[in-house]
């Protein structure tokens, strides 16, 4: 069995005696009350990757990346034939490594996305925080408007998608820009 043991985060003592206990029990190493919930995945053997088969029969399709290996599935992104080694299964989709890389870089594979820049939050901050000191909004409100227009099409919050922050930031920044233009015009006319 190749499972890694469950150990205390502080003293690294094995916590086998505390598995799925109903209440907190002291860690055998450091005596800190600990609760350990384990699941069958802990005792599951690690899956060994599939090996690609060599082509033995004339007429069998070969892998695009390894022509000597037998193709087992086409890539759902580009249609290339893939051997068992090159086939990457992701959310029930079969992709080749290059499609996976392109999808990750371009953000088309949402389940591989691990970072997102929140331009809507940045725009809203730029539209609201400088109001505390008033004068910085001369610079920050046009910047907020720029962010709104520049990144309007980009996705916002991952778990709460929506354009509400962009809209609010745009309205606030627009009002500030109008107010500043009016103020400077008033100064010029006066």
């Amino acid at each position: 069995m190749s499972a890694q043991p469950v150990t205390c985060a502080k003293c690294r003592s094995p916590l086998g005696d505390l598995f799925n206990a109903a209440e907190l029990r002291p860690c055998p190493g450091c005596a800190v009350p600990t609760l350990v919930e384990v699941f069958p995945a802990l005792f599951r053997d690690r899956v060994v990757g599939a090996m690609a088969e060599t082509i033995l029969t004339v007429g069998d399709a070969g892998c695009f990346f390894h022509p000597q290996k037998k193709a087992v599935v086409p890539c759902e992104g580009c249609g290339r034939f893939l051997c068992a080694l090159c086939d990457v299964e992701l959310n029930s989709q079969h992709l080749c490594p290059s499609c996976l890389e392109i999808g990750r870089k371009q953000g088309r594979l949402k389940s591989l996305e691990n970072h997102r820049d929140l331009h809507d939050r940045a725009a809203l901050l730029l539209a609201t925080l400088p109001l505390l000191l008033i004068w910085p909004s001369v610079v920050c409100s046009p910047l907020a408007l720029f962010l709104v227009f520049r990144h309007w099409k980009e996705p916002g919050d991952y778990v709460r998608p929506g354009k509400s922050r962009f809209i609010l930031a745009g309205i606030l920044a627009g009002l500030q820009v109008i107010a500043w233009i009016g103020f400077f015009l008033y100064l010029a006319i006066r």
């Binding site: 009350p33 600990t34 609760l35 802990l42």
Partner: peptide, 9 residues
């Protein structure tokens, strides 16, 4: 894939 959740007071 979750194997365990460990809560330490």
């Amino acid at each position: 894939d979750i194997q365990a959740v460990i809560v330490r007071k």
